[in-house]
Amino acid sequence: MQGLPLSFNDVSKAFTIKGEALRVIDGMTLECPAGSFTAILGPSGCGKSTLLRLALALEEDDGGSVKVGGDDPVLARRSGAVGVAFQDAALLPWRTVQDNVRLPFEVLGRTPDRKQIGDLIDLVGLKGFEKAKPGELSGGMRQRVAIARSLVTDPRVLLMDEPFGALDLILRRQMNLELQRIWSAKRPTTLLITHGVDEAVYLADRVVVLSPRPARVLADIDIPFERPRGPELLRDPAFHELCDEIGAHLDSGRGDA
């Protein structure tokens, strides 16, 4: 299935906290073409997660428009076109691994695709743990369940909010490899929010650097490396040069504030 384009057009969002307005996003425009992989980098609290929540219609924008496949995000998510993984695995502790992965089907009111569920659990390396409860898994394994769940409906848009943030470096690299493999196979339009510069450069076609709150686009950088990208890319000087350049953009944003 083909990816759907994702677009933010002059989007603004403010929160009211104790009667005071807090501008989180201020007139942001961002186009993610169908089948692209975009990584978003920015300091903590700059509104990255809010951007993703807008695309999921978990928040309403105050101005501008957010479109998923040219449609309202509410329609997109109802049609099952969107897959999501949060920083927290957000597993239901009373359900087994396979029942957690099955959850999106239940919400959408579709018949669960048993083969797809089994294949995905296999893909994220959890074969044999189908009947385990989340409490019996390590943090990394839980996060992999969440990744499997985000892919189970064959989403055309994949939204990920620091899905590997809680993992250690070794596991994180391993998960990056797996995510790249899955993405290359199915090509959903992917928006990855992350704190890790190397993770962003390694995975994405394009890295967008945001300013501190209210979020603006500071830099929009194409990542030229050939796919499939192997672990050796992490040792490539060109890779590190690009990481440094993006790191400099992040620092310049901090200087502005």
């Binding site: 999921l56 999501v84 957000a90 239901l92 919400v107």
Partner: peptide, 18 residues
């Protein structure tokens, strides 16, 4: 209830009853 789990249900188009 875990707000992330609730968000997840909403993200797949489920309403408050779901």
């Amino acid at each position: 209830a875990d707000p992330r789990a609730i968000d997840l249900v909403h993200a797949y188009g489920g309403g408050r009853f779901k």
